[in-house]
Structures are given as structure tokens and as C-alpha cells.
Design a protein around this nucleic acid. Structure first.
Lengths: 300, 300
DNA sequence: ACTAATCCATTCATTTTATGAATGAATAAA
DNA sequence: TTTATTCATTCATAAAATGAATGGATTAGT
């Protein structure tokens, strides 16, 4: 394949990418900090190189053609890849090694990242790039070497190895507990309850497991991330059900008090996911190391 | 992720790509049809953007640093991807659909391609890009939608579905047969034998299955592709063991005469491979269609 | 040790390419 | 209509990439 290599310029591709996303040259121009004129001409150039109209000009406004949409999808992916490649190279600095890691936001912030320096110290010249991402995405496309996954064995294209089960506990700030005079687990339900939007059933399940009817337990404040629930709990806003892994420090320091263990029948737990087929030794070593970090399931 | 998007120019990346491949700016310049000067400066620019030396200047000559090699690998892949994307878009023309197909060279030329028009006619606006490739490569990386694979269930990252077993026959050109007066299968071994380099054991296995000692049967002419073996057989150069799928026409027209069936204990056969995880309906439909094409195992 | 050849770095003048500003044409909304 | 919006085009300008020439450093050959 002698590269007669008629690749369109990056300028061209970026203009097309933005235009396709927005289906508007003016908007794309704004996004790119260019004028509409520039974008218009760049897109036209791409159309000439490809030999096919990519947008249908409809009076004012443009719409992607079929060919345009197909190309846009591909090009967006390719550019994103290229950006990541460059980004990783910058992060790697002088060393040849970067490990690209993804994990759910709160898990990353509270459990994973604090432990990373130890791993980094074991490997000379290693740098890391951490992405917070919740759940199944394409490891290959996004160029992630290792991802922490919470859920089941349900990640196609990923090599999963179990990390640890989730251990849930009901907690609250000490002064809140004093105020409500909690003595037995069921008392917890009298306090204001804090919820994670994605898992609103937790309190109900907990209540049921204690013999409570479990009705109307979804009221209370809702948050879309564990970190927010944690902040709220620390602020004494209510009781929360949280994974122990995310509040190790708070439990140790007594900023949050464990009120009851929560058992859930959902068979979800933490996994380490690596891209299938790809065989990066560093990723394997990181996986092994991660699993070792979790041997001491509780430290309180 | 607000794209502060400091992507190096494509010119820069291509210069780096070529330089990395050759570990020489002058050679890279030649490959790209540029001057050494241009390449030198482009590479330098990339090094400045990344913030790390990518080549070690060693007197005359340059050598990739660790970081350089890592980046080169990634960038080569990314550019190749981009090229394919553009290439496929050009091939697709006005229609939104391209199917990228890979198959072993001779199989593609003799069996697959002749049948493709029929499939294409079933799908409006469909175009195809065909690559001849022998054996396990990364479907995702190379952006192949469907690949024909000969071998076993041994393609990681690919969804395999069986197409058909390989049916081998010993054949020769009619005049050669006359000349050697072949009457029973064992007589075949008296003729000059033609071999496929990758499978030199075929004649020996054949001979053993007939009770012959099977020694010294690897001599004769060797070729690295089935198509060459076929040409040689047609030219009366000797007898060959060939898959029926590759010589359907010749058997029908009597240009090659079937001398004996060959049974092999190797459990290899043809498969259709599609990238795991990706779920392209067109690829599925092509797979199904392919398997239907093979229902009539023999047409003679 | 000298010479010739090879290769990379740098500079400067030049060409090529991308861009902005201005303007026109088409369309949709008021 | 009138007005506002949006894309297309043109032209002058700014920015970027390039080639030619040159210098320095290194290796190979004698």
C-alpha cells in the first residue's frame, strides 16, 4: 500500500468534526474560535476530497447526509484517539510508560487515587492518566488500559477479574445520631435519609431486611454521586447508605458513625477490566497489585 | 473535557511517523517527497509540543527514545486508522454504507470476490472494500467489518462462525495425467509434486493415508500462495493438492482433473470473523449470506 | 591524520495554505 | 414586506510549511 496518502488536513477534519456535531457551520466556527467563512471552506474542501457531499444545504442551515454522518462518526472517533495519544505522550513525559486508568468518579477520588502513588513508586518512569468514568465504555476505543468497574460480569470486550464485593453500611454524622437518639438499627429510619439517585432502593431493601414494611422510604435528599451523599452525611444532613471503601477515613476518624450493616441481594461488586486481546504487562501487574490492596477488607 | 485541542498538525505527525519507521530524517524525507530540512523541523516541533525528546541525536543518525517509540506506535496506528476512514468514505461514495472485508488472498480472488456482486445487489447503496490478509490481525484496529479466516477457533477478539470445512483434492492438468498414465491414486505420487510453502505436509499425509511410506515427498516446486500453485498446476507443472473452493471453475471446465480426494486430520476450516462487541447489522447479514453461499458444497 | 561522504540543524527567502472581513444569496420568521 | 439568520464566495492578509543553501558533527576509507 504505497501511501499516496491524500489525507485531509487536520484543520479540515476538525472543522468537519465540529460542524457535524453541531450541524451548523456558524456554531462550529464559534466552537473552534474561527469564522463561519473558514469552516465553510474547510468543509467544502473535505467534500471535494471525498468526492461526495457530506452536508445537505437546506436554505439556511445544513444537515448531514448519510455519507456525512457515517464519516463524522468515524472521524470523531479517530480524532479523539489521536488527542488521547498525544495527551498520554505528554503525560508520560520522558518515560516510555503511561497507564491509562478509568474508574467511577467517587471510587477514583476516595479509594483509588490515594493508593496510586504506591504503585507508581514501584515502577520507574511510570506515569498515570486517570479518567473518571462510570461504566461500560469501549476500552479499546478510549485507549484505557485498566478500568475499575462496579456491577456484574457484564462488560463485553473486557477481560474482567473480580476485585472485591461492595460492603454497604448505614452511617450518619455523630451529632445527628445524638440528636435523634438512635439506639437500635430500626431507629435509623426516623432520621432524614440521603439517597444516591442511581440506587434509590437501598433504604427500602435495608428496611425490609429488618422487618419494616419499607414504604415511603425514597423521600429525602437525592444526589447523583456518592461524593455528594458523603458530603451531605458529613454535614449532618441525614443518614446514608454508603460503601465502606468510599468512607474509610471518615469511619476511622469518627466523622461518620456506622449504624448498621446493610446486606443487599444484588450481586454487584467491583471488577478490574482490561481490554480483551491486548496484553499489556503493566496492566496485568496493576491489576494484581490492585487486588492485593484490597485484602484487608476493613480497617476499623 | 473542553478541547483546548492542541493537536500537532498532520504534517508534523506524518513526518514523525515516517522518521520513526526509518529512524532517519533523510530517509523519511525521501519517503514523503520532502527535504530533510522540512522533516527535521517538523519533528522538532512535535518534540516541543510533547515536551520530550523523541529521538536521540547520535552524531549522524537519530534513534528513537523510549518515549519516542511508544508515541510512534500509537501515532502510526492512529494515522493508519484515519487513512482507512477516509479511504472507506471515498469508497462509500454517496451511500452511507461500506463493508470492509478481509480474506486470504487466493480465497478472496477465486471464491469470495466473484460472489460479491450478488450481495451488493441486495443492498442499495452498499459499497465494499476488500483487503487480502492472511490471518489473525486486529479487526478493530484495522477497521475490518468481516473477515474470512482459515484455521481453528483461534482468533481472540473475534466472533467466529463456521463457514465450511476445507475439501482438499489432488489434481493435475489433463495432458500431464495422460503423459504419466495415472490410473490409481498412488500413481499420483510419480508425478512432479507442487507444494504450498505453508503446508508442505499435505502430500506426505496423503501418501500415508494410502499406505505409502510418505518419505521424501516434499521435493518439488514450492509456492507461497495457492494462486501460484494453481497456475503451476494449470500449466502442467505437476500435481497439486488444492481446496475445491479455489478451483471450482477449473474442475468444471476440465482444466484440472480430480485425481483423488484427500482427507486430512487437521481440524482446520473456514470461519467468518467479526469484531467482538461491535454489532454491525450489515456484517451479520453478510455473514449469514456467506454461509448460504456455501450450502452447495460441490457443483461438479 | 586527512579526505570524502553522510546526516542532522539552522537560516532565509519563497510558496502554499488558512484565515478574517466584507459581501451576496437564499431562506425562514415576524 | 422586512428582518434576521445562515451558508457561499471573493479578496487581501497572516500564518505555516517548504526548499535551497550552509554549517557542524560523525563515520568510513585511505
Amino acid at each position: 500500500m504505497a501511501h499516496a496518502d491524500r489525507l485531509p488536513t487536520l484543520a479540515v477534519l476538525r472543522c468537519f468534526e465540529a460542524s457535524a456535531k453541531q450541524e451548523s457551520f456558524t456554531a462550529a466556527a464559534e466552537e473552534l474560535g474561527l469564522t463561519q467563512s473558514a469552516v465553510s471552506r474547510q468543509v467544502k474542501e473535505l467534500e471535494e476530497q471525498i468526492g461526495t457531499p457530506l452536508f445537505r444545504r437546506e436554505g439556511r442551515g445544513v444537515r448531514l447526509t448519510g455519507a456525512g454522518r457515517a464519516l463524522a462518526d468515524a472521524v470523531c472517533g479517530d480524532l479523539e484517539r489521536l488527542r488521547r495519544t498525544i495527551y498520554h505522550a505528554i503525560a508520560a513525559g520522558t518515560g516510555p510508560q503511561v497507564l491509562a486508568i478509568a474508574a467511577p468518579p467517587t471510587f477514583a477520588a476516595r479509594w483509588l487515587v490515594p493508593r496510586l502513588p504506591k504503585f507508581r513508586d514501584l515502577h520507574d518512569g511510570l506515569e498515570m492518566v486517570v479518567y473518571s468514568r462510570s461504566e461500560p465504555f469501549d476500552l479499546y476505543k478510549e485507549q484505557i488500559d485498566v478500568a475499575v468497574h462496579f456491577g456484574g460480569w457484564d462488560w463485553p470486550g473486557a477481560q474482567l477479574s473480580p476485585l472485591c464485593p461492595e460492603t454497604l453500611v448505614a452511617v450518619a454524622a455523630p451529632d445527628l445520631i445524638t440528636r435523634y437518639g438512635v439506639s437500635k438499627p430500626l431507629d435509623v429510619l426516623d432520621m432524614p435519609l440521603l439517597h444516591l439517585s442511581a440506587r434509590t432502593h437501598l433504604w427500602e431493601e435495608f428496611a425490609k431486611s429488618l422487618g419494616h414494611n419499607g414504604l415511603a422510604l425514597r423521600q429525602g435528599s437525592h444526589f447523583d454521586q456518592f461524593s455528594l451523599v458523603i458530603s451531605a452525611a458529613l454535614a449532618g444532613m441525614g443518614a446514608a447508605i454508603l460503601p465502606t471503601y468510599l468512607i474509610e477515613r471518615e469511619l476511622n476518624d469518627g466523622d461518620l458513625i456506622r449504624l448498621a450493616d446493610v446486606t443487599t441481594d444484588a450481586v454487584k461488586s467491583y471488577f478490574v477490566a482490561t481490554p480483551m486481546g491486548k496484553n499489556l504487562p503493566l496492566a496485568a501487574s496493576f491489576t494484581a497489585w490492585l487486588r492485593k490492596q484490597v485484602i484487608q477488607p476493613r480497617m476499623d
